[in-house]
Write a protein that binds this DNA or RNA. Structure first.
Lengths: 230, 230
DNA sequence: CGGTGTGAAAGTTTTCACAGCG
DNA sequence: CGCTGTGAAAACTTTCACACCG
C-alpha cells in the first residue's frame, strides 16, 4: 500500500552481505527507533552516520546492499526505514528463544526488558539441576532438559541461548543442535564446535574487558598535551 | 630469565594494531589457557587455528604484530605464549573495575566467576537508588554515586561498566568520564557520546539476537541438498 | 539546493607461498 | 622434516566524488 522504494519481500540480497554490515544495520535501527520515539520524521545519511560515528557514505552503501530506501534531497523516512530494516533483520516476526541455564545470569536475562523491543521473547528455560526444575522465575517455569526437543519442535523455536557454566556449554550446544535450533547466543567463555548450518554469536565478558585493558594500556600516542606526570 | 623470543616490555607495536586482531588475541589466549590446563606443552599455528576456525597463516600474522614467539619446527610453547599475550593485553596486572547499576543484570555480573580468570575484579558498585545504597550483594557494598570520583581516584581505577537502564546510560557514562575512567563496557542499548580518549565496548543483547535472526532467515543457499520441500 | 545511489579509487585484511631454521 | 615469519598477491571494505533527482 505505502509506496516504499523497495517492494516488500523483494530484498535484492544477491551476493552475500558482509557480517559487519548487518551489525551496523542493527545500530541504525536502534538509533532510528529512538529518533522516531522522539518525533523525528525523516533523517539523512549524514545525520544518522554522525550519531553513530560513521560516514554518510558508509550509511548509504550499507543500505544499498538491501535496496533503495531514500528520497534524494530529503533523506529517509524514519517509519519506512525502520520497517525495511526490521524486514531485513527478520524482526517483524516474533522470535521465541529457548534458554539453557537458570543460574544468576540466566535469571537476570529473563528479567531483562529490551528483548521484547525487537520481538524476541524467552519462551522456555531449561536446567539440568533437579532442584531448579519446576520453580518459576520471572513468571517462567524451569523445565527439565528432556523437554527441550519437544518444546523446540512444538513451538517452532529456531534460536537458543547458552547461559550455563563453561564446562557444560558444549553439551548444551549439542542438545540445542539435536533439538533443531539454528542459531545460538553463547555466554559461556568457550569456543563451541557446531555444524556449519548453525550460527553462533558469542559474548564473553572477560574478552570485552580485555579489549579495553589493551586499548587503555596502549593509549600512548593519542590526543594532545600528554605530559606524563603533570 | 627464560629465553622467550621477544623481550618483556619490548612489544614492537609500531603501527597501530587492527581491533579485530586484538579480539582474536583474546580468543587465542582463552584457548591456550584451556589447553594448558589440559596439560598441553606446545601448539602449532594450525592446531590453534583449527580449534578456533581460523587459518594457520592468520594466527601467525596476528602474533607477528607483537613479536616473535614461535620455534620453527616445533610451534609455540603454551606457557610462554600465554604470558606474552597477557602482557600484550595488559592482564598480567590486576584491573579493578567500577560498576554503575545494581539491578538484576548488575547483580548477576557481580556473581559471575570468570572475571577473575583474567585479573579483572569488581571493586565497587554504585546505584542512584537510595533504597539500594548500603545494601551488600555478593559481598560487595553498594555505594552512592557521590562516592564515585573518590573511589576511582583513590584506588586508581581505569575501567567501568554501565549496567543501568537505557535512559540513564549517558548520564552514567558522563559520571564515569568525569571521575577519570578511561574505558567503559556498556550493556545499555544506546550509543554513548564520549570524548575520544575514552574507549568503549558495547554489548546489546537484542542486537546479538538480531544478527542471528538475520542469519537464520537468510539461510537460503548453504550446504548441499537444500530441496525446499522434499 | 540538499540529498541519494553508485562506480571507481584507496585503504585494509586475509591468504598464499616460500625462504629459513633447528 | 615440520613449522615459523613474512613479503607479495588476492580479496574485501571504506571512502571519494559525482551524476542524477525532486
Amino acid at each position: 500500500m505505502t509506496d516504499s522504494r523497495t517492494q516488500p519481500g523483494e530484498t535484492p540480497s544477491d551476493a552475500s552481505v558482509p557480517k559487519v554490515v548487518v551489525s551496523r544495520i542493527s545500530l541504525y535501527l536502534r538509533e532510528l527507533q529512538r529518533l522516531q520515539a522522539a518525533g523525528q520524521q525523516t533523517i539523512s545519511s549524514s545525520q544518522l552516520g554522525t550519531l553513530l560515528g560513521f560516514s554518510d557514505a558508509q550509511v548509504r552503501k550499507d543500505l544499498g546492499f538491501f535496496g533503495q530506501f531514500g528520497y534524494p534531497g530529503v533523506g529517509y523516512r524514519c517509519d519506512e526505514l525502520i520497517r525495511a530494516m526490521r524486514d531485513i533483520l527478520g524482526t517483524n516476526q516474533p522470535w521465541p528463544v529457548v534458554m539453557l541455564g537458570a543460574g544468576n545470569l540466566g535469571q537476570a536475562l529473563l528479567g531483562y526488558r529490551g528483548f521484547g523491543r525487537q520481538n524476541f521473547s524467552i519462551a522456555a528455560v531449561f536446567d539440568a539441576d533437579p532442584a531448579k526444575v519446576g520453580q518459576t522465575i520471572q513468571g517462567v517455569r524451569i523445565h527439565p532438559l528432556d523437554d527441550l526437543p519437544g518444546i523446540v519442535r512444538s513451538r517452532g523455536i529456531r534460536l537458543g541461548m547458552i547461559v550455563v557454566p563453561a564446562e557444560r556449554a558444549q553439551e548444551a550446544a549439542d542438545l540445542l543442535v539435536a533439538a533443531g535450533v539454528e542459531g545460538i547466543v553463547n555466554f559461556a567463555p568457550v569456543t563451541l564446535t557446531l555444524p556449519p548450518h548453525v550460527d553462533v554469536v558469542s559474548v564473553d565478558l572477560a574478552i570485552e574487558l580485555e579489549q579495553l585493558s589493551f586499548a587503555v594500556t596502549n593509549k600512548l600516542a593519542r590526543s594532545l598535551g600528554d605530559a606524563t606526570a603533570s
